[in-house]
Design a binder for these strands. Structure first.
Lengths: 218, 218
DNA sequence: AAAATGAACAATCAATAAATTATTCACTAA
DNA sequence: TTAGTGAATAATTTATTGATTGTTCATTTT
């Protein structure tokens, strides 16, 4: 058990090395086998296929990313507001630097997601859980006024979508993105705070679709 | 002048037809020339290259999309809040239906953007201008409390990024996206409204980067 | 002149063949 | 029994070629 575990780890280590240097497609099973001083066939006793090695690496990468974000929760802060700000900015900075310094990580993630869509869904869910904890704390302490923590978490997460994998959408610099994110957080936080008179603004309801059906085939 | 203008329009019409039916790559200049009863060479008296025909079509598409959104501004509404809600949902619905009914439109847009990055920047800017007008109105009437309309517009636009070209990010249904967007707008609108005691929450400032440099090459 | 042509050329694409690679499995070693 | 092998095969990628397409331009038509 422990024996086969270390063998498995050896494969993962070799793969991490090659994937990040040469990329997933240009790394061959034969090369990994060589690195581990074993035959290609033996790799398949530990992984069902090449893609599964990538999945395992990406899974660990995603988990450690959430850990980095979660680490911010351990820092002492004045308020839930500050906690939320710290986490959101940490998220932006972490993914920005990751894509900047190790571009192959993005490539690997895209390959994994295109083969395993569920992977992305679960990664995002883990990330949201961190947000949810902060909102919950803020609600409990009375600092935030939140009618429904679950749906507000989703809203917060959606509103900051642009700042995860920002390089996919824009070629703004990190400084620009930070400035922009600060404005987004200003609006959102004002929206999370209780109004002094205790009467929160009514929720947005989905407007009815009035306009004629557009975009018919030309 | 008018003569060559109608010829140009004939080419655009033929291209619109073929691009939306068979796609940009599978449409040949020879076919367009045939459709217009002219020789391939003559097309080049009106467009510098094939891609420029696509750019012109995409430009018009983008303009008419903004017009659709702007049309919402003409409907009488009770409040700036309602106006903003209508516009944001109209945007989601328009682009959602567009990509659903005419998927080649997305393909064309992506081809144009990859060749002319400026195209996307300008399209987004036009869209933001609509948002900005509403925020400005709301500020003038006192309905919204906004310190800086320009940066708040950018924030609003960024926070709703997910709902433009939503199909690129998720495979949620329109109904799911609408429900989610309603929550996002709830938070944002609460953030835009003036607090009763007149003292708005301080703006978010960019937190200092405390964590050690992460994501060094492995 | 201005508008248009169509053959000529260069660039790109599609189809196929060749080479490489992922995966399996009957087998050997510990 | 468990760990590992490596040749055989299936799947994928890469290279090569021929065909198609985008673009130009000397020439013709209006």
């Amino acid at each position: 058990m422990s024996e086969s575990d270390t063998t498995r780890e050896k494969i993962i280590a070799a793969a991490r090395e090659r994937f990040s240097h040469y990329g997933y497609p240009k790394t061959t099973i034969a090369e990994l086998a060589d690195d581990c001083a074993m035959s290609p066939g033996n790799i398949y006793r530990f992984f069902k296929g090449k893609i599964d090695i990538a999945v395992e690496i990406a899974r660990r990468e995603a988990l450690s990313a959430v850990e980095v974000i979660e680490a911010v929760l351990d820092c002492p802060v004045r308020s839930s507001r500050q906690r939320l700000e710290e986490v959101v900015f940490a998220d932006l900075r972490y993914t920005f630097h990751l894509l900047e310094n190790r571009p192959k990580t993005l490539e690997l993630a895209q390959i994994v997601v295109s083969d395993r869509p569920q992977f992305q869904i679960e990664s995002l869910r883990r990330e949201r859980r961190v947000f949810q904890r902060i909102l919950h704390e803020g609600q409990a302490s009375g600092e935030f006024f939140i009618e429904n923590v679950a749906s507000t978490t989703i809203a917060l997460h959606a509103a900051t979508t642009k700042y995860r994998y920002a390089q996919l959408f824009t070629n703004q610099t990190l400084a620009e993105l930070e400035r922009e994110l600060a404005h987004v957080m200003t609006v959102i936080l004002r929206g999370l705070m209780p109004s002094k008179d205790g009467k929160p603004l009514a929720e947005t309801t989905i407007p009815s679709e009035e306009t004629a059906p557009l975009a018919s085939a030309s």
